[in-house]
Design a protein around this nucleic acid. Structure first.
Length: 293
DNA sequence: TACTAACCTGTACG
DNA sequence: ACGTACAGGTTAG
């Protein structure tokens, strides 16, 4: 038993070592990670994940770390598969250590509902308050943490309670979304099993979830690697680098156009289009941020 | 169906 | 100082 565990954790180190944590954590996928002294700590639903450097180690409350970092994906094959042009190839070369994460579905669902028309810092603040105010307090590695609250926890809170987390008009979305999980209108295990289109349709029926938020939830927590969230940044990227390959007409992205564009994108990038999105997004964000430094 | 304005909140500019 | 704009969008008209 002991030996088996040793073997498992040893074999994970090369995989973990190939990851650039800083890049991955700061890629807009996750919002509840912080560095304390020499380790990174992240909240993932009812789990806490720790990554320490020197020596490189990974640890979590409920041993979900292999799933979280998608060690089950054949990353080199995926890189080859999505390298359809120079742009993606260079982005992968530049951010080789960036990884797509497999998040806790409920936390991911709430996180991206909260993200709408907001900014990264504000999103982080809101989610942190949601944890501190409603999540279970846990001691881990001599630090105090708050887990992400469950759907039941949030569904019982008043709008007023939620407003105190800085959610603004999103407070009602968050409450309703939580109730929908409790009453079974949203069933993550079902959504994982069905295909992209079926799962997306279900999510879009919910109040406060539009095309972009639905795609983030699908890509980051529901096994839909063909999801490709189209936000303002991705539209900029498509116009800038893919004008000929994936043309887009018109000023606004209507639901119908969003669908058509997604279809073209999957035709072009293939079944791992979501991975490509992550690298392109990172590339453009990084270019943009440089201007402000 | 396509297009627009309004929307909570915090912060970065002018 | 104080007003305005904007942020990985969504909804209502």
């Amino acid at each position: 038993m002991h030996q088996k565990q040793m073997k498992l954790s040893q074999s994970k180190i090369p995989l973990l070592d190939s990851i650039n944590l800083n890049e991955t954590i700061n890629s807009g996928q996750v919002f509840l990670w912080e560095k304390k002294e020499k380790s990174w700590y992240g909240i993932n639903g009812q789990d806490i994940i720790e990554i320490s450097e020197n020596p490189l180690k990974i640890k979590s409350l409920s041993h979900s770390e292999d799933r979280f970092f998608r060690f089950d994906d054949s990353i080199e094959e995926i890189f080859t598969n999505i390298s359809r042009d120079k742009i993606v190839k260079n982005a992968i070369k530049r951010f080789r250590g960036l990884r797509l994460l497999r998040q806790d579905p409920f936390q991911c669902y709430i996180s991206f509902i909260v993200s709408s028309n907001s900014n990264i810092q504000n999103i982080k603040n809101c989610l942190k308050k949601i944890c501190v105010n409603f999540g279970e307090k846990i001691e881990f590695q001599n630090y105090e943490f708050h887990l992400f609250p469950t759907a039941e926890d949030i569904s019982k809170k008043s709008i007023q309670d939620l407003l105190e987390c800085g959610l603004g008009y999103r407070a009602k979305y968050v409450k309703k979304a939580s109730q929908d999980v409790v009453n079974g209108k949203i069933d993550f295990e079902y959504l994982k099993k069905v295909d992209y289109h079926t799962a997306k349709t279900k999510l879009l029926e919910r109040f406060g979830i539009g095309n972009k938020v639905a795609d983030c939830i699908l890509l980051f927590s529901l096994e839909k690697l063909d999801s490709f969230p189209l936000d303002t940044w991705m539209m900029k990227i498509l116009k800038k680098y893919y004008y000929e390959k994936i043309p887009f007409e018109g000023k606004t992205l209507t639901p119908k156009k969003y669908d058509e564009l997604h279809e073209e994108i999957v035709k072009y990038f293939g079944p791992y289009a979501g991975y490509a999105q992550q690298f392109l997004f990172k590339m453009e964000r990084e270019n943009y941020q440089k201007k402000w430094l």
